[in-house]
Structures are given as structure tokens and as C-alpha cells.
Design a protein around this nucleic acid. Structure first.
Length: 149
DNA sequence: GCCAACGTTGGC
DNA sequence: GCCAACGTTGGC
């Protein structure tokens, strides 16, 4: 089982939205490195939910991957902000996975706090200039994060 | 709202 | 293949 971290802007899709819906498709990833991580996910993998571009950026909960990568339907929808007219119909560029709510932390593990934890220094999230929205989390990092949650 | 850092595009 | 220009991300 692998572990991951996924970013979302809470004004678009928050941990509370996921809690309400139970299961949701994770769409809108438009970066090749992030997409490749989506494609590496297995059903049963676990992931952290991170709120970005908001008043208090940080990790807010956990989820489980319940369906492996499949073509992100928004890339073909001209009405969607994620529409990609250049994505070939035969070999779609962008993928989604399905995720299931697995818990909301009692507090936000803020980015500032995470940056101060030496054991998390290798996490792409805390590295300067990193904008990666889907990233792997090592077993040790996962353990550290759950311990401070 | 600002702006640093990054990824992508496209001319050459 | 290089690299300047551009658009986007995301913290502050």
C-alpha cells in the first residue's frame, strides 16, 4: 500500500465536501508529473487531503483511493474550467481517480507547522517553489504526520 | 493583490 | 534543442 498527498482549493472542493459526498472523483489535475502519480495509485492506497490557496493552508484529513486512474471527463467538457481542447480523444492526456472520505483531523496541520518538522523536510510540499499537487508520501512521513495530527 | 517560482508553448 | 515569453500556482 502506498500513501499520497493531494491538494485542493477548499473554495472549489474541500474536506467537508468530500465528507458530505463520501466518494468523489478527483479531477482537474493538469500537470504531467502529478498525473503520473495519479496513474501509479492502487485501490486501497491512502492519501492526505491538503487545502491550498486559502487562509490556512494545511493538511485537513485523510481519504482512500477506491478507483485507479481513468480518463478525467472534464478534459472533454467545453463547459469545464479544466477543458483541454488539445487532449486527443483516443489517448486522453489527463486522468482522475476516485477517492473515499476516511476522516477529518480535529485541527489543521498548517503548512507553517509542517515546515518546522525535520522528518518532513523531504516532502515536496514543504520545498521552496514546489507546486506539485499530487505527491507520494513515504511510510515514515505518513507516520510522522498522523502522530502530530 | 503581489510576486516568486514553476511548467508549457512556440519561434527560431 | 534552446530559450524567451507567457500563464498558472499558491503562499503571504
Amino acid at each position: 500500500m502506498a500513501t499520497w498527498l493531494l491538494k485542493s482549493e477548499p473554495s472549489v472542493f474541500s474536506i467537508d465536501d468530500l465528507q458530505q459526498r463520501g466518494t468523489a472523483l478527483w479531477d482537474g489535475v493538469r500537470n504531467y508529473q502529478a498525473r503520473n502519480f495519479l496513474r501509479a495509485m492502487q485501490a486501497g492506497d491512502e492519501a492526505l487531503f491538503y487545502h491550498s490557496s486559502c487562509a490556512e493552508p494545511g493538511i485537513v484529513g485523510r481519504m482512500t483511493i477506491v478507483r485507479t486512474a481513468y480518463p478525467d471527463p472534464t478534459q472533454f467538457n467545453p463547459e469545464s474550467p479544466y477543458f483541454d481542447p488539445k487532449s486527443p480523444a483516443g489517448t486522453p492526456r489527463w486522468d482522475s481517480v476516485d477517492v473515499c472520505f476516511a476522516g477529518k483531523f480535529s485541527r489543521v496541520l498548517t503548512l507553517a507547522e509542517l515546515k518546522a518538522v525535520p522528518a518532513l523536510a523531504g516532502l515536496a510540499l514543504v520545498q521552496k517553489g514546489s507546486r506539485l499537487s499530487v505527491m507520494p508520501v513515504s511510510a515514515a512521513e505518513w507516520k510522522t504526520i498522523l502522530e502530530i495530527a
